[in-house]
Design a protein around this nucleic acid. Structure first.
Lengths: 208, 208
DNA sequence: CCTTAACTAAACAAGTGTTGGTAACATGAG
DNA sequence: CTCATGTTACCAACACTTGTTTAGTTAAGG
């Protein structure tokens, strides 16, 4: 029992196929980040165990733990923005565009609680994760701001640009609060998430 | 340099004054929880260092680290609810009551980022912190729900009880999102926090 | 003095990221 | 078929954390 912490019975990869392990590492880290309730506790050795490999073997593919996490986070962030943008593709109106984007955002956050918390929750040590992923929301935020502005304009509600920024910010905080509390406080008797999202959108789009 | 990690030149307390250290421990933990950017990384030894005492000395006053954290968290949560309730004391109308409560909530969250993140952000390991503090928001949430319902009724906007619950939930998520993003994403060019809070309240109180 | 509260020193067992050296092994060359 | 090659991954260790326990020391009060 005290012999080996795992069973490294892994069959060695073929000559040029070293990046098979690399892919497995990325996949394992992605799985952990996505599902684990406290992503900041993810450990190098945990990933190694998941794949069935010795901890040291990771260093052949990534210079350190932060690089692996950062790599996966970037993938996930790109996926989020891509899904948000793709969801709005066939939108027939500005309001539909905004609605699609918000729903895609919330849906992704709900389906990837760990990734979401890591990207927007300031959970990772700053020295581990490159700064680029910190403050990741800004690009996405801008798309929400402009989409909201267009939706409001469509409804005949023209406002100053600075008001647009404020309004977009508030919409974002509304969505963010919804996602994080919904993900984290399962004890609460939550109504349907899509309905709540719709209501948040309606609050911010309609003239008060 | 390698002699002592700190300088335990602390003068020993008198016979019946053992709880002087207890108070200092609580105070140090409170300071750490309140100010630190990642509260889940707070450590027993860190608290000991802060007070200038040996790590083991803590166990005379608290059975384990979780008890100390839990104790302080309970204090802080009580403080939050007390401040929220106190703020609404002289309110001349239901809308004023709600406004005061929300501002007090946001203000406290802004002034105690670490405590706020710990109470509502699911950052502490569940086995360390007693369950009572987890899901702490429920009591507070109910007061927001009822205050919002009264504010809406005051404006002649009567709605079903279930709608009240949904509306209160959404208001809470809005405030929560505002606090957490404002606290965590300093890079963003934020408008005044009080103004934003007012706008959130207005969104939820006024008839769409 | 002697009791006893208040605190400490040292260690424990378990964990962490990371490194240097080394063995296994698929494979292309001879 | 043989065999050196160099990729691939392992082993063992390092230097450090962490929370907690045990046994002991210090000093105040009766």
């Amino acid at each position: 029992m005290e012999k080996s912490e795992t069973e490294p019975l892994r069959r060695r990869n073929a000559r040029g196929q070293g990046q098979l392990l690399r892919d497995q590492l990325i996949e394992a880290m992605a799985r952990l980040l996505s599902t684990v309730e406290r992503p900041e506790t993810i450990t190098l050795r945990q990933v190694a165990r998941e794949v069935g490999v010795a901890p040291a073997s990771i260093y052949g593919h990534f210079p350190n733990l932060g690089a692996l996490i950062g790599h996966v986070l970037r993938l996930r962030y790109d996926e989020l923005t891509q899904q948000v943008n793709a969801s709005a593709e066939g939108a027939g109106s500005a309001v539909a565009d905004l609605t699609a984007r918000c729903h895609a955002y919330v849906k992704w956050g709900h389906e990837h609680p760990g990734d979401y918390a890591t990207l927007f929750g300031n959970r990772m040590p700053t020295d581990l994760i490159p700064l680029s992923t910190h403050g990741a929301g800004e690009k996405l935020l801008e798309s929400v701001v402009s989409s909201l502005a267009r939706a409001r304009a469509e409804q005949g509600w023209h406002i100053a640009e600075q008001q647009s920024w404020r309004a977009g910010l508030l919409l974002w905080t509304g969505l963010h609060g919804l996602v994080t509390l919904y993900n984290g406080h399962g004890a609460i008797d939550w109504p349907d998430l899509d309905d709540l999202t719709d209501e948040v959108i309606r609050l911010h789009v309609n003239r008060p």
